[in-house]
Computed example of a mutant assay.
Amino acid sequence: MTETNATDEATVTVTEVVLPGKVAPSGLRLVQRALPTPAAGQALVRVESTAVSFAEGAMRRGRYHGQPAFPFVPGYDLVGVVEAVGPGVDRALVGRRVASLTKTGGWATAVLLTAADLVEVPDGIAADDAETLIVNGLTAYQMLHRSAKVRAGQTILVTGVSGGVGTVLAQLARHVGARVIGTAHPRHHEALRTLGVEPIDYRDPDLTARVRALAPDGVDAVFDHLGGASVTLSYRLLNRTGTLVSYSIAAALDDTRPVLLDFLPLLAKLAFWNYLPTRRHASFYDVWAGAGKPDSAKREAFRARMRTDLAQVFDLLRDGRLTAMIAARFPLAEVAEAMELAESSGRTAVGKIILVP
């Protein structure tokens, strides 16, 4: 894939998955193009592992706030090996396995990335295992520790606990000594019990009563990815000092109206609850919050926070205290099948859908 000339510049032809517009998974296109050599501050990364997340499903529907104009290359995160670096980048990075939170661009055999955005993956962690913990692990860790500040002895509720974020969140919560109640399809309940989750059928018409039977005084935190009516139910299930963390609007995934018309009422509802004279708290979590502009002080603080939190998650994985939950692996050329499985994961898969370039 890579040729190196006498001036140590890389010439690379890459295969990428292009999302041309609002299409079914079968409408994704595989294309090839040449990458330029790394510019100042850049690194060329050969992708070992990337994945399908909720974000790509939303993007192909035009439902992800802030997504680029079509056509573009999806891929929210990746793990790979640095093959070349541009001027101003430490050459010791070459040959190292790294992780990157990209938002787009990861579905490719190689990518050019800003070197400052790379996080080194500790030795002894496989690429696919590390991939399960980038956006999912970062999201779960920050929601648990930075947003809700969950402590030992507390009880939390996780909606859609069988998904990529949910399985990591459940494990991290159990690691700190919290009790985990989670909603999921019954076919996943056995696997979830092995993670220490107390599962509830997400289709149960009396979900509130089921949760109240397990936590009569309410739960200390709810992590809700559905939005809409679900977030109201989640708030009502909190105890007197509980915290609600909303982090997606999955229930509105197939709506046809502008996505802001779903987000704005949710944000208004969360803000209203925080003005009420109670000790409860509600917030919306965005993994990119506080990122700021490139090369700004905010971006540097964001990078430092990301490195710190990912290091914690990777250490837990390496030490065997966290299990990488991989639902399936697909070659990059079978991305349509991977996306179809990922979008039905509430019924058929537990964990992350991996793409192997």
Rank of each mutant, 00 (worst) to 15 (best):
V98R: 05
V82N: 13
V119L: 10
R318K: 15
V12K: 03
D8C: 03
H225R: 02
F302P: 08
V45P: 08
E300H: 13
D90Y: 05
G177T: 06
R60M: 15
S49N: 06
G182Y: 09
T109M: 09
G163H: 12
M143F: 02
R305E: 15
D123T: 07
T241D: 04
E198P: 03
A24K: 12
V111F: 02
G242E: 02
K149N: 06
G346D: 15
D217K: 08
R299F: 05
G166T: 09
L237C: 04
F330Q: 06
R321E: 14
G351T: 04
R307F: 03
G164Y: 09
L266Y: 08
L101H: 11
S246T: 11
P331D: 07
A221H: 03
T278Y: 00
G196W: 08
S246D: 15
D201P: 09
A282F: 01
T11S: 14
W273C: 00
V165L: 11
A209N: 03
I125Y: 09
V180G: 12
A184H: 09
D128R: 13
H188V: 11
D224R: 09
P277Q: 08
T7V: 01
A127Q: 02
G153V: 01
V12Q: 07
A215L: 09
S230R: 05
P71C: 10
A92R: 15
A115W: 10
A148D: 10
V197F: 09
D295P: 01
S234L: 00
P331Y: 05
D309C: 03
P71F: 06
Q42R: 10
V356W: 00
D204Y: 02
A170C: 10
L317H: 09
T11R: 12
L226A: 15
A271Y: 04
A229N: 06
V313P: 12
K298S: 14
A170V: 06
S147Q: 13
R46D: 11
G27C: 05
G351Y: 09
F263M: 14
V158D: 02
A191V: 07
V52D: 07
R187I: 11
G21R: 12
V356I: 13
L267Y: 06
R174W: 05
L244E: 01
V94L: 05
R203D: 13
